[in-house]
Simulated scan of single mutants.
Amino acid sequence: MSDFNFNTFETRVSESLIRHKSILDVITKLQESASKVNRAIVKSATDCGCIEITAKKQSIPSDITYSELSSYLNSHVEGELCENCRDVIEAELGNHLFYVTSLCNILDIDFETMLKKEHDKIGALGKYSLL
């Protein structure tokens, strides 16, 4: 993957968009691909069982600072993805990124520039960027 770059990826996505050239097609495929990512994760827990999702109320002390918050929060995921589930989820995430990139291409948004801006925003604001 040493020859990988975002511009090459954007170009390949653009060249692959034949059937789904309409923004309406792309946004509905993006929504569908997000659902497939979610389904693959759920099936890892419910069908395979390699992970468990133990969703429960987060226990957060009232006297902590915002910067300490992450040490008290839990992902609700226990275990590790097996190789098969990891492959399926990676494939679905890759498909989802294809449609995110397609949407960027249609709207003339440079994917790499968008990522760099988000990276810079997170770097500048740190934990406070998602408030």
Rank of each mutant, 00 (worst) to 15 (best):
F98P: 02
G79L: 04
E78R: 11
N74I: 14
E83A: 12
I122E: 01
E52S: 05
H20A: 14
F9D: 02
N74K: 07
I18R: 15
I60K: 12
E83N: 08
L81T: 06
K116E: 00
G126V: 07
A34V: 14
I41Y: 10
T11V: 11
Q31L: 08
A40E: 03
G79T: 00
N7S: 11
K127H: 05
F6S: 11
S22V: 06
L81Q: 09
D47E: 06
S16C: 14
R19V: 14
E32S: 07
S14D: 10
Y99N: 02
P61Y: 11
L73D: 02
C104A: 10
V26R: 03
A124C: 09
V37C: 04
V77L: 15
T11H: 01
I18P: 00
K43A: 04
E10T: 09
R12K: 10
I64T: 11
M1Y: 07
L107V: 00
S129H: 13
I60D: 10
E92D: 07
S71Q: 10
D87N: 14
I64V: 09
I18S: 15
D108W: 11
D63W: 03
I27L: 03
S59E: 06
I64W: 14
Y66T: 01
L30Q: 03
N105P: 13
V100R: 09
C48K: 02
L93E: 03
T8W: 06
I18A: 04
I51M: 14
T8L: 05
C50R: 01
I60R: 10
D87E: 12
E15S: 14
R19W: 14
H96F: 13
L130T: 00
T8R: 03
V100M: 13
S14L: 15
K57D: 06
T65M: 00
D63N: 11
F6T: 04
D63H: 05
E112G: 08
T11E: 00
S59N: 06
E78C: 01
F111A: 07
V77D: 01
